[in-house]
């Protein structure tokens, strides 16, 4: 186990979270949220939670992001904040 790998992912996760909330374009926000999910999925695989990682990859990075994009597509793409 490489702790430093852990830390990098964790820090990137925080950054991804902040970016996805800061970006004004909701489509990009959804994409960044997908990246966030992907990072967290990596982290879990690394922590030994393979099943959780697998699920998160399918659900968080995949389906959730698609749902978000579908909604953004059907509503407005710009956000005021």
């Amino acid at each position: 186990m490489i702790p430093i790998f852990d830390y990098i992912i964790l820090i990137f996760m925080v950054i991804a979270a902040i970016i996805s909330l800061k970006v004004k374009d909701l489509l990009s926000a959804s994409m960044v949220f997908g990246i966030y999910s992907f990072l967290i999925c990596l982290l879990w695989a690394e922590m030994g939670a393979v099943d959780v990682a697998f699920t998160e990859a399918a659900v968080g990075a995949g389906v959730s992001a698609v749902f978000l994009i579908a909604t953004v597509y059907n509503t407005k793409r710009r956000s005021s904040d």
């Binding site: 909330l21 949220f33 968080g60 978000l68 953004v72 956000s79 005021s80 904040d81």
Partner: peptide, 18 residues
């Protein structure tokens, strides 16, 4: 203020617990 942003926040909130 944006509802989608709120939902993204909500998801982040939940993943943090996970």
């Amino acid at each position: 203020n944006n509802l989608i942003k709120k939902l993204i926040g909500m998801s982040i909130f939940q993943t943090a617990i996970i």
